[in-house]
């Protein structure tokens, strides 16, 4: 699962440009010979038929990224970004467009900055991608308005942890790929969704296609477990186990869903923590209001520096999140949730 995560993390798949990730997952899962379907948005949906309720597990394939907004006279590329703090892009390497053209995001040297400039935040609007083009015409021959721009960070082990780009949500993808290796006593659907970072969009059509009775969302979530912060500001802690969602910015977990996940963790000795934050959102936000309503459980893996060029997460947390999702499905705990529906 972690070897897969490494490959997934290194793939470029900005929201709306998930093709490479989809192709990778599709090919890796082909030996399972499951019914596989790509919907018009690009969601990859796999079906393992079984007795029991229709359960959807999903993870999003897209990552935060950028888009070429225009080509400037000096050959640099102006860009738009979604979900990226501009304070983490300066001095980083990127890949531009289909061909993965190398580029960098630079900034005015510290030597030339005024005091006010030094104290200010570089905004995306003032930054640009430098591909080495001599001028506008040269840049136009190599890049185009609307080309996607992706961070260029190779996955790497980091002490006892893992680091790389797009851990949100290639971690979820790796877990979901692993879950698909098993059989469960339910009618199991796996959706690798698109455009989560644009507003939980892929999940809308995935829910429509699958019509789940219950859904599990596998995510990577914020870990602000840094020194000097109040404990409640951490949201989650890396190494603290799988994070179970009670609420976020777009969903409140049904209490019995939340308790079913907690019980699964406790009774199986799986390390877990309750996600503290009440902000942010996952595909669950789209799914719980889909159709006539759907109970959603959120299992997340804590990730430091999420949405930056290099996140940090724990392999043990990833294993715990997988173990929790697996226990929930294997032990048919969905019945505890659905009994009341």
């Amino acid at each position: 699962m972690l070897a897969r995560l490494e490959q997934l993390s290194n793939l470029c798949g900005v929201s709306g440009d998930e093709g490479r990730v989809r192709a990778y997952i599709k090919q890796a899962l082909a030996p399972l010979k499951l019914e596989t379907h790509t919907d018009p948005l690009g969601n990859l949906i796999l079906h393992r038929p079984g007795p029991g309720p229709r359960i959807l597990a999903c993870a999003h394939m897209d990552e935060v990224g950028m888009l070429v907004r225009g080509i400037l006279e000096d050959g640099t590329l102006a860009y738009d970004a979604k979900g990226i703090d501009p304070r983490c892009v300066v001095g980083k390497r990127v890949r531009v467009g289909e061909s993965g053209l190398p580029g960098v995001i630079g900034a005015k040297a510290i030597h030339m900055q005024t005091e006010e400039e030094f104290a200010s935040v570089w905004e995306h609007r003032a930054l640009y991608v430098d591909i080495g083009a001599k001028d506008k015409a040269d840049a136009e021959a190599n890049a185009a308005v609307g080309d996607f721009i992706c961070f260029d960070t190779r996955f790497m082990r980091l002490g006892a942890l893992l680091s790389g780009k797009a851990l949100d949500d290639r971690i979820g993808c790796a877990i979901l790929m692993q879950l698909l290796q098993n059989t469960y006593a339910c009618d199991f659907y796996a959706a690798f969704t698109v455009q989560e970072e644009l507003g939980l969009r892929g999940a809308i059509t995935a829910a429509y296609a699958v019509r789940p009775q219950l859904a599990l969302v596998l995510e990577a979530t914020t870990a602000n477990d840094l020194p000097g912060l109040r404990p409640d500001e951490s949201v989650t802690r890396v190494g603290g186990g799988a994070a179970i969602t009670m609420m976020d910015g777009v969903t409140m977990a049904l209490p019995r869903m939340f308790f079913a996940l907690k019980a699964a963790a406790e009774q199986n000795g799986i390390p877990y923590q309750v996600r503290q934050g009440t902000r942010g959102g996952t595909d669950g936000g789209s799914i719980h209001t889909a159709l006539a309503g759907c109970p959603v459980g959120g299992i997340s893996v804590p990730c430091r520096y999420i949405h930056s060029p290099c996140g940090v997460a724990s392999g043990e947390d990833i294993q715990a999140a997988y173990a929790l999702a697996h226990a929930f499905l294997k032990e048919e705990r969905f019945h505890e949730v659905l009994r009341h529906v």
Partner: peptide, 29 residues
């Protein structure tokens, strides 16, 4: 002359007596 604003999200190496350790620069929000 290091500008701290280039650091968040950057990989670095810590050069210890036992050899280099990879690390990631983070920032307190």
């Amino acid at each position: 002359g290091v500008d701290p604003r280039i650091l968040p999200g950057a990989r670095v190496l810590v050069h210890t007596a036992g050899g280099p350790l990879p690390a990631v620069m983070g920032a307190l929000p």
